[in-house]
């Protein structure tokens, strides 16, 4: 039996005190933290993909597999700093459809 791997799209916001981190810094921090907690095989199974990230508002959209959604949300909760700056990665909306997630993102 073929089991399809479904994707989940998470709209999130980076709440910061000073400057919003750029996409590269954000990617590096999430990947590193994921690898530390769940290992290399867990990271590869997660299928993380950064769809968009608006550096002005600090909002973004990230894709992961449905099975690793919970792990990714744990990682979001564990990240406290990006390059020495305090940050909160707050998940705002989760959807299985990219169209819906993008619509939510544009409404923020």
């Amino acid at each position: 039996m073929v089991v399809l791997t479904r994707d989940r799209y998470i709209v999130f916001q980076a709440i910061v005190k000073s400057t919003v981190p750029n996409l590269t810094e954000l990617k590096t921090t999430i990947w590193k933290k994921y690898e530390t907690i769940f290992g290399l095989s867990g990271t590869s199974e997660a299928g993380l993909y950064f769809e968009t990230f608006d550096e002005k508002n600090g909002t973004g959209l990230i894709r992961c597999s449905s099975r690793s959604l919970s792990s990714l949300l744990t990682i979001f909760a564990l990240i406290t700093k990006i390059k020495e700056d305090d940050v909160i990665l707050l998940p705002l909306f989760i959807s299985g459809l990219i169209k819906k997630a993008k619509a939510y993102l544009s409404n923020i």
Partner: peptide, 23 residues
Amino acid sequence: STPCQLRTSSQIRHITQLLGIPY
């Protein structure tokens, strides 16, 4: 220890999954 370490209840519940308690 800083305001940026505040977490919502959902986020705390995700962290506790690491301790072996289901969400």
